[in-house]
Design a binder for these strands. Structure first.
Lengths: 219, 219
DNA sequence: AACAAGGGTTGTGTATACAAAAGACGGGGA
DNA sequence: TCCCCGTCTTTTGTATACACAACCCTTGTT
């Protein structure tokens, strides 16, 4: 694989998983030595990260990992509400009903899988698959790209949120409701179920204590 | 100014203004010679353009200017509807009423300015200012960035659309209605007026004959 | 002792050289 | 005559070298 691509994915994973914390300065020389590649692909990776909003230019000198505050989470959910509701609405109009019926069925059995694994990878894989199916059903590449960007930032928040089994069980039921409303081809209901889910998800995300109340200046 | 930044803006302007047409292959060496800079900043500019969606990787070999079809315009307006309506809604909740009252007043007098200039720069400047005020009032940087991306693509379409004075006069009235609903602090009305405007704007944009009916493969 | 000026150090922006990979073209064989 | 394979060219991907700018530390002066 191309070195620049590898560097980008590695750094992105480090940021999303909070191995790199906000305020961390990313110098080109440091990274090129740490990753064993030259500065050129490192520069490419850093400019892509900055375009994604995961890093910010730092006083004209390098880039730093962006902070993410409770206000950012609210703003992200505001945008996500617009995008997810529209995607669900379109999916209900255009999607394949059997696909979403099958997803709803799987989600109804997800409660058992929740207690199996400590990090619940099977559940998150299922949610990711549903997101992908909604994207595909909406059939709108611009909407899809905007959603991908929002999900990137939200993945960062999710790694911080406490994923207690109780909330996950409720979330699974909410996802099932969304899938069923899409399967029934009911756009208005798809919007409503999505909105309900996002309202609860935001409430849960804001319960994260590690979130800075306001965007802190990286010191 | 940095050479990469200049190259990016120049190429972006060329694409948006259709001086570079879809399918045009952008080679790094060609561009570096044409712009009088080395390949390094050219590469940066091209990767940013590709991230914006204005260019696409071409068979693993360089990039080409993206095509934009009637389907793309529909998809863009689907996304724009979600984003603009939400922005107008938030602006109606959070915005400064006097600002939008003043904008509405200016727009009500825009009809006269429409006949003055062949390309109507004063009118478009006013619309851009209103967009900026809505962005500011919404106070959501993520929404703002998503909107900027959509507007970039729509600017490309607008350069192709026939801007007949009749349509522009109607559009000005629609914008005035949006500004007034925001000034009155009525979120639901702001959404409604925005949606009306977008519906008409889409109809006008789709009347552009140069738009490929489906996304053509660049030959 | 504090502040300012200057030099050194560090890091980015750009250019260029080198390497690698992916078509294009031609030759040879069936 | 057509197809396949090898080589060749062209273009991208990566490395490195150089130039310039910003910060920091030191030193001298007030």
């Amino acid at each position: 694989m191309r070195a620049g691509e590898r560097a980008y994915r590695e750094l992105r994973a480090d940021i999303v998983s909070w191995r790199l914390t906000p305020g961390q300065v990313l110098g080109e020389v440091d990274l090129s030595e740490r990753l064993g590649i030259s500065r050129t692909p490192v520069r490419e990776a850093l400019s892509r990260l900055t375009a994604d909003g995961l890093t910010e230019p730092h006083n004209g000198r390098g880039v730093v990992v962006s902070a993410i505050s409770a206000g950012d989470v609210r703003a992200l959910y505001e945008l996500r509400d617009s995008l997810d509701c529209r995607a669900a609405e379109l999916a209900a109009q255009r999607g394949d009903r059997d696909t979403f019926r099958a997803l709803a069925e799987e989600l109804s059995h997800a409660a058992e899988a929740l207690s199996d694994d400590p990090d619940h990878p099977a559940y998150y894989e299922l949610v990711d698959r549903m997101d992908a199916e909604i994207d595909h059903a909406a059939g709108n590449p611009y909407l899809q790209q905007a959603l991908a960007n929002v999900r990137l930032h939200l993945a960062r928040v999710r790694r911080l949120s406490t994923s207690n089994p109780r909330r996950l069980a409720i979330a699974a039921a909410e996802h099932e409701a969304i899938a069923r409303s899409i399967a029934e081809g009911d756009p208005a209901l798809a919007v409503a179920t999505t909105r309900v889910h996002l309202k609860n998800a935001l409430g849960n995300a804001l319960r994260t204590p590690e979130l800075a109340p306001v965007s802190p200046v990286a010191s």
